[in-house]
């Protein structure tokens, strides 16, 4: 009986969590830069969520909760500075890929934008990712970031202005 219930839980868990994986991964990569580190982070977050599955039913917004867990996990990773070397090598790979893609102009523009975002401070990066790329509401973002909504708006405004400035400099 108990194993059956567990099985049900696992199915439900995968059903609910799986669609979020890509979003969690993109956020993790935005924060950690390295592709591999982001993949590891998503795996770790999945395990954390699975361990907390009994509490998950109480969470009204599961996705926002998963994003918060991902954010905190990535912050911890950055504090550990475990992946500093990885991020360095990753930048090399990205440069390489950029050279190949330069033929295709649109692809190049996306790469430029990606690099400009990557050059921003971490909280700017995260807000741009959550709002402009993943299109979360301000309410959700405030929940994920554990900030007030006004604070989110003020910081996001600065982030957007900084990004536009960077992009203009790149174009000229």
């Amino acid at each position: 009986m108990k194993t059956n219930q567990n099985q049900m839980n696992a199915d439900l868990f995968m059903h609910q969590i799986e669609p979020m994986q890509a979003k969690l991964f993109r956020l993790a990569r935005r924060l950690l830069v390295s592709q591999d580190a982001a993949k590891d982070a998503v795996q770790d977050v999945m395990v954390k969520l699975w361990e907390k599955r009994s509490q998950l039913a109480d969470k009204s917004n599961l996705e926002a909760f998963a994003m918060t867990v991902t954010k905190n996990h990535c912050y911890d990773q950055l504090k550990l500075k475990r992946n500093q070397n990885v991020s360095l090598t990753h930048e090399n790979i990205e440069d390489n890929a950029k050279n190949i893609d330069q033929v295709i102009e649109t692809q190049d523009q996306v790469q430029k934008l990606n690099n400009c975002i990557a050059a921003l401070p971490i909280n700017y990066r995260m807000l741009i990712q959550l709002r402009d790329i993943e299109a979360y509401s301000f309410e959700d973002i405030a929940g994920i970031m554990e900030m007030s909504e006004t604070n989110v708006r003020v910081t996001l405004s600065r982030a957007r202005k900084a990004l536009v400035k960077q992009m203009k400099r790149q174009q000229s």
Binding site: Q21, A22, F25, R26, R29, Q35, K39, V42, I93, N96, A97, I100, T106, Q109, V110, K112, L113, N114, D132, I133, E134, A135, L163, V164, M167, K168, Q171
Partner: peptide, 28 residues
């Protein structure tokens, strides 16, 4: 034009997922 690059880029960046990424890496 700079805003066009930014908004269209956001649209593209929101469509990348785990598998796509790994295939891109393979290509490079």
């Amino acid at each position: 034009e700079v805003y066009q690059h930014i908004f269209l880029g956001f649209g593209q960046l929101g469509h990348q997922d785990l598998n796509q990424e790994s295939s891109q890496v393979e290509v490079t």
